[in-house]
Write a protein that binds this DNA or RNA. Structure first.
Lengths: 251, 251
DNA sequence: ACTTGACCTTGACGTAACGTCAACGTTTCT
DNA sequence: AGAAACGTTGACGTTACGTCAAGGTCAAGT
């Protein structure tokens, strides 16, 4: 029996057979005078063994270990572990499908809307359309959603809760509009300081605490710099003054 | 912001960021005079976009297409297809886990026992332990299990049904013992022909038909050669005579 | 004898999404 | 000024084969 026959018999390609020879999973058979590999039934049986294990999901390395061990002892361990791994994969896939279903159910399907649905809802509520500052703020929050672990993310979401009441939203929109309006004024304009004070007063106490704390964290401490880099001088000044105000209030 | 900060902020490695640059998924930012990449907030936002899509299970190629398309239109198609793919994966994993559970529940856990449970049961019942010929026969059947498509496999299993009655099994064991006993006799020994005739009579009619038919099939037609190669001359002769008898009976 | 076509041989590159050196330059801290 | 921590490009490793490339072998038909 030559390699093509063997492969067809077991249901693999000739490349696969040669690959297994190369890895030492299947012994090289005798050669014909012309150099062809000449297989016997035992080779087909060995190949079928390997294939059955491979189709269960074992890696070829694991298969070699299992076959070298030549007792069922290790096989049971490996299969048990494999089952646990498959269980984890099932959970991961189920979670991804759940997120997919939530996304597909939503109307505004764009790459930015692929944040988790709860945060997406909060963002939609909080920020008026057409505002450059609101867009920047959304960007920051989406970064938190993407980079943080789930626990931290839930915490952030909870911090936003107080801002979702109708009154808080209305005040927030007004503040955002004032920020947009200050885009091109002089950083020394008195409205800059006034907006900073009003913003500081608008933020829930716990959110203010969290923001100040994050400034001392190596991983997240740069948010203020990152935001001011994207704003006009006056707007950047508003943010800096707001933070200063928060710091003083915290003392 | 340098590459390490960016990576930490979004929760990836610096290698990942550079990889995305290489693929064109993320634009290269400005460089400092020293040659370092200097990132801004917008880069983090873009990277987070890519990451969210990647974590949903999109390939980086798909992500590039989706982002290039810059409308949600293609995204919906891609996500829908992805969901279907995940559903298929879930089914495949569930099937593998079911096979694993069946295997782990069995007592005789060895690489040969990884044939499908129903066939494993049939094999255990049909063949006495300690017989070289029975081992060969089991090998052939396990090859069928591994190489064939499920429909053909079920067909084969059905063919074995008539042999699983207690009387048939007893006769089968006796025939197997006679085959083992003829290992070293002369191929011309009269017991060779007698055993061939008794074997032919023992096989269910439909199995005999299937065996003869398979001899004309390119993929499976070599089973007789493969078996006789592994047997002693007298045993090989038994098999060949049995096939001859079956052929004559079929006319 | 010659050609054709099917099969075989080894060798090497490609795949996906990065991980992990290596060898070397830059910033920052002490 | 030296060391630690960071950055740079380049290249190889991972998994389980697929897919050429460039040729050798073999059976059949002319």
């Amino acid at each position: 029996m030559r390699i093509g026959e063997l492969a067809a018999l077991v249901g693999v390609t000739t490349r696969t057979v040669r690959h297994y020879h190369h890895l030492g999973l299947l012994p090289e058979p005798e050669r014909t005078p012309g150099g062809y590999r000449e297989y016997r039934l035992r080779d087909a049986v060995l190949l079928a063994r390997v294939r059955r294990l491979a189709e269960l999901g074992l890696s070829l390395d694991e298969i070699r270990d299992v076959l070298a061990d030549d007792q069922g002892r290790e096989l049971r361990e490996v299969l048990t572990e494999l089952d646990a791994d498959l269980a984890r994969q099932q959970e991961a896939i189920a979670a991804r499908r759940a997120r997919l279903a939530a996304l597909l159910a939503g109307a505004d399907l764009n790459p930015d809307a692929t944040v988790a649905p709860d945060l997406a809802d909060a963002l939609r509520d909080l920020h008026p359309a057409g505002s450059a500052f609101a867009a920047l703020d959304r960007d920051m929050v989406s970064l938190i959603d993407t980079g943080a672990d789930p626990a931290a993310r839930d915490h952030v979401l909870a911090l936003f809760q107080p801002l979702t009441t109708p009154e808080a939203r209305e005040r927030g929109h007004a503040l955002t509009a004032r920020m947009d309006a200050l885009a091109d004024v002089d950083p020394a304009d008195p409205r800059v300081g006034m907006l900073a004070a009003d913003l500081a007063a608008h933020l829930p106490a716990e959110m203010a605490t969290a923001m100040l704390a994050s400034l001392d964290d190596a991983e997240t401490g740069r948010w203020l710099d990152l935001m001011t880099d994207e704003l006009t001088p006056a707007q950047a000044q508003v943010l800096r003054l707001m933070v200063t105000t928060l710091k003083e209030a915290a003392r």
